[in-house]
Design a binder for these strands. Structure first.
Length: 422
RNA sequence: GUGGGUAUAGCUCAGUUGGUUAGAGCGCAGGAUUGUGGCUCCUGAGGCCGAGGGUUCAACCCCCUCUACUCACCCCA
């Protein structure tokens, strides 16, 4: 007989215990911090009309050109599994007119994203992001608040060695001029560029700054920095942000080559990079996108957002941060009658938190104690023939080996008292 | 889409120039005076040696094809 084994689709990332407990702890910290800053959660659709991403992320980007899970549904509509969260948040912001109630302007989300890429370290086809977006705030104070908040998150998670890289991409007033300027510069060095950059230099010249090819890096080493082309407003916005970060004691470096793979960004753009992650070293990234809400059919609304790669974040957290809780008491019945006596207590005490464990199989005292030890319980409650005859259970402290007797009538209360002692 | 590496027990991995019953550690199960855990010792279960084909008297080992995983390029979180 041939055994068939059905497995997950390539690159689809699942989280098993005990890792899933660690995810919960980290996710809770994220939620607590964000909600402390006034963010509210949005639970979004995983499937969107393809057009949403083509319009928001940009039709010329790699994500849209070759990395999306796009297919036709039974009515022949083109749908796409979301490759990122911002487009959906903006879509929802417009669809439900969230901007009209002033208190809902800070939103966060947690969940899986999908990109059809070749999997490697820190990169999966189904991966998870923690993201947030702020709408309606143009001030660089907003950029600063969000970046400080992210730094606080890394600090709270005891993650060290994360570098903040910053840049400004300008706005509609100053970016086109820079773009043309850069285009000219690149066309003069056409011969020195890789194939991709030759293409980029026409369609999306900013991306050529980001190329990892060493020859390209050399060729664009003295490219005009965008900071020289920023208009006064953008320039003030950026220096204002940098000043606030310095005041807050946040280390950062300005990286004029930092551009984003998504077309919607304006002004501030940033990445948090971690050396320990291998080639995929961005653990969080984002920036300002003052035009996107309007481009997706809403009222012109400035916005700032970011996304954290959950898997990458978890790679930076040492596995020592995994204090799994143990149950307090192992209930140890010897025989069917004892099991019947302990079962109602077991289900009663565990309603709110796991207090007891109970084996339904008839196992020897020895093996049950062994299991209790492995589970890390503090007390073992033994009920066998002798105890049934006497109407008292033996309560053994697994650390001190002290044993006391607890009368059956008061078992629940006695166990509750033990619970409150710990 | 393009390269490199890997594939043997639930996990981490050995396995000689091809030689007949395939190994360890951890984990799991049971036992070492009848109803008392951790340490130690003993025993056991668990493998079509990734799949298919080829060479050979003989293949986990050599050759070919495929698949999966993995790292890197590309790109991104």
């Amino acid at each position: 007989m041939k055994k068939i084994q059905i497995k997950t689709v390539k690159g689809f990332n699942e989280v098993l215990p005990p890792e899933s407990f660690r995810w919960r702890l980290v996710e809770d910290k994220f939620r607590d911090l964000l909600e402390g800053y006034g963010f509210a959660e949005l639970r979004l659709a995983l499937l969107e009309p393809t057009e949403l991403f083509a319009r928001s992320i940009g039709g010329e980007t790699d994500i849209v050109e070759k990395e999306m899970y796009t297919f036709a549904d039974r009515s022949d509509r083109s749908l796409t599994l979301r490759p990122e969260g911002t487009a959906s948040v903006v879509r929802a912001y417009n669809q439900y007119s969230l901007g009209k109630s002033s208190e809902i302007n800070k939103l966060y989300y947690v969940g899986p994203m999908f990109r059809y890429e070749r999997p490697q370290k820190g990169r999966y086809r189904q991966f998870h992001q923690l993201g947030a977006e702020v709408f309606g705030e143009e001030s660089f104070y907003q950029d600063a608040e969000t970046l400080v908040m992210l730094a606080q998150l890394f600090h709270a998670l005891s993650i060290k060695g994360v570098e903040l890289h910053l840049n400004s991409l300008g706005c509609d007033a100053c970016r086109p001029a820079f773009r043309d300027h850069l285009k000219d510069y690149l066309s003069q060095r056409h011969e020195a560029l890789c194939e991709d950059c030759r293409r980029r230099s026409l369609e999306n010249p900013l991306r050529a700054l980001d190329c990892k090819n060493p020859y390209c890096r050399e060729a664009v080493a003295d490219a005009p920095p965008i900071s020289d082309s920023l208009c006064d407003d953008c320039s003030l916005h950026f220096t204002g942000l940098c000043g606030l970060l310095e005041d807050a004691g946040i280390d950062f470096q300005i990286n004029p080559r930092l551009v984003r793979g998504l077309d919607y960004y304006t002004r501030t753009t940033f990445e948090f990079l971690a050396g320990d992650l291998g080639a995929q070293n961005a653990v969080a990234a984002g920036g300002r996108y003052d035009r996107l809400v309007e481009e997706l059919g809403g009222k012109a609304t400035p916005a700032f957002g970011f996304a954290i790669g959950f898997e990458r974040l978890m790679m930076l957290i040492g596995s020592e941060v995994a204090p799994l809780t143990s149950p307090l008491v192992a209930l140890i019945p010897l025989g069917e009658e004892a099991l019947g006596l302990l079962f109602p207590i077991h289900v009663d005490l565990n309603r709110k938190a796991q207090v007891t464990t109970l084996s339904f199989q008839q196992k020897s005292l020895k093996s049950q104690l062994k299991k209790a030890d492995k589970d890390g319980v503090i007390y073992a409650l033994i009920v066998g023939q002798d105890e049934l005859a006497q109407g008292e259970a033996i309560c053994r402290n697994m650390r001190t080996k002290e044993q006391t007797k607890l009368p059956f009538e008061r078992l629940r209360e006695s166990l509750r008292e033990l619970y409150h002692e710990c």
